[in-house]
Amino acid sequence: MSTHTLSVLVENSPGVLARVAGLFSRRAYNIDSLAVGPTENPDISRMTIVINVESHSLEQVIRQLDKLINVIHIAELKLDESVQAELLLVKISATTKNKFDVEAVLETYGASIVDEDAESLTVEATGDAAKISDLLNALERFGIRELAQSGLVAIERGSGSLADRTLSTQSIPTADSGQADYQN
């Protein structure tokens, strides 16, 4: 088993998340995480999907995904060719006594305190999976009360963009009596 990050451009149409999620569940593909958000083009959303597959079936996953009419483009983003990040919000037990210790940890990870009261601190951090998991380990001794974590998002390094390369403006002519023209 190995982990792959897929960046999937989809038409921003209703039901598209259900189509993708349904495909993964019915074909028994393991999803580690899935994040959906807008892109620079309002008609297109980006799904970042982290999957765990045998290497030979990655191609199958991509081809099955590509069969969904609303899926426009799929690219695998390799670790060394992309920037990858997750968002972590974690609430830890902290008092004025140990706040200094917490802050010392946070500094090493570039994380910050976004909310606090007498008993707890809420910490926000972003980074790749390894960094987030290290940070969580480091915070464990203070007592983790609750955590919320996003799926991974990723973008290709350099100036290129997926959308530029893939969005064709090709359109399909329909004739007035459509049927005959679709047949060969």
Binding site: E11, D66, H73, T169, S171, I172, T174
Partner: peptide, 10 residues
């Protein structure tokens, strides 16, 4: 009736 169809993913 549309003159042409645009299906960017198909």
């Amino acid at each position: 009736w549309p003159k042409d169809l645009s299906l960017p993913g198909y």
